Amino acid sequence: MHIKDRTFIVSGGASGLGLATVEDLHSHGGYIAIIDINADTGNQTVQRLGDRVQFYEADSRDTPALEAAVKDIAAWTKQTSAPIGGVIPAAGVGLPAKLVGKNNEPVDMSTLDFVLNINLRGVLDLLRLCLPHMTTNTPTEPDGERGVLVLVSSSAAFDGQPGQIAYAASKGAIRSMTLVLARDLAQNGIRCVAIAPSFFESAMTAQMSGKVRKSLENVFEFPKRPGQAKEFAGAVRFCVENAMVNGEVLRLDGART
């Protein structure tokens, strides 16, 4: 799919991997709709990048807010004649916890809900709201493609670490539903791909201690460093542009062992 003159919706697009994706797609001629809770950085990004970027403040856990955002984005695409070509749900959180803590107390359910509601429920909610606007797109030559979903899984979906129970469950679900979505949407000419990054520099990983960071770096084969946001964004662009990439989960993990 060509990026130029198509709209791409990026949740969590005001920072980290989402912001890098916004910048990359925008640099290749795309129109970008950022959905995020951080209004300050979202609006700053709009001011920096210009008219082909719009910001919509919404929490991934808030269905009415997402509905309003998608409705406004759809109206914007009518003005620009740039149909929704892709959705990248990049909003995500990680909150370390085991089901049973040191004092033999069960984890508070609100901790699990917080992670699952953003990383999984919020993704499904955004996709179901966006898809009706994509299935009616004019199909493009030569394959009749109408759009692409690029989901964000994680290496934790394959080999989650202690304390990642909710995070691994949410990202494992993203991994599992990628092929299902690809099959469900094939008749509509819409692809679905997922990217599973390992240790990437982001706001989430910036909170890690030096000891934890070093232990994670040690399990990379090559290169021996965290991934960079621009490398993630480049992978998103590859998934958008290559029509043969469908139903697959692409690992970005430096051959992590």
Rank of each mutant, 00 (worst) to 15 (best):
P96W: 10
D51P: 11
Q187E: 13
D51S: 15
R61L: 02
G18C: 11
F114Y: 14
G13K: 04
M1V: 08
P226W: 06
S153I: 01
A166Y: 00
P132G: 08
Q164C: 10
A169K: 02
A69Y: 03
D36P: 05
E141N: 09
T135H: 02
K211M: 08
R146L: 09
G122N: 06
L151A: 03
D159R: 15
S154E: 01
A156I: 05
R48Y: 02
G247Y: 09
E217H: 02
R61S: 07
E201Q: 11
S176N: 15
T45D: 07
R213W: 00
E141S: 15
R237E: 07
R175K: 15
Y56I: 09
G13C: 08
S198Q: 09
L149M: 08
L17H: 10
M1F: 11
V249T: 15
E105C: 04
L120V: 04
S110C: 03
C192N: 02
S176P: 06
I35K: 03
I174S: 02
A255M: 14
V193N: 02
A168G: 06
A182T: 08
S153T: 04
V46P: 10
R183T: 11
T178N: 02
I195E: 00
L19R: 13
N246V: 09
G247N: 06
G18K: 07
M244K: 10
Y56A: 07
G86N: 06
V148P: 06
G160Q: 06
H28N: 12
P132I: 08
R128Q: 15
A39H: 10
A206E: 13
A157E: 09
G50V: 07
F238E: 03
G94N: 14
R6S: 12
H2Y: 10
L19V: 05
P142H: 07
K102A: 15
L149Y: 03
N188Q: 12
Q47L: 13
V115P: 02
F55L: 04
V180G: 11
E248M: 11
G29K: 04
E145Q: 14
D36A: 12
F114K: 13
R225A: 11
H26A: 12
V22Q: 03
K78W: 00
P162C: 06
L250T: 01
L95N: 14
A194F: 01
D62T: 03
T135G: 05
G86K: 01
I195M: 01
S11L: 08
C239G: 10
E145N: 12
P64E: 06
D184W: 01
M208C: 01
D5S: 12
L49T: 07
A82C: 10
S60C: 12
G42H: 02
G160D: 05
A173Y: 08
R191E: 03
G254L: 04
H2V: 10
P197S: 06
D159F: 12
N104T: 06
A186M: 10
A14Y: 03
L149W: 02
D5Q: 13
R256D: 08
S81K: 13
R146Q: 12
I88H: 01
N119E: 09
Q164P: 00
S60R: 00
L126G: 01
L131F: 09
I190E: 04
I34N: 05
F200Q: 00
V212G: 00
E145Y: 10
S81M: 07
D5P: 07
D125T: 15
F158W: 13
P226M: 12
M208I: 00
G160P: 04
H26R: 08
G163A: 08
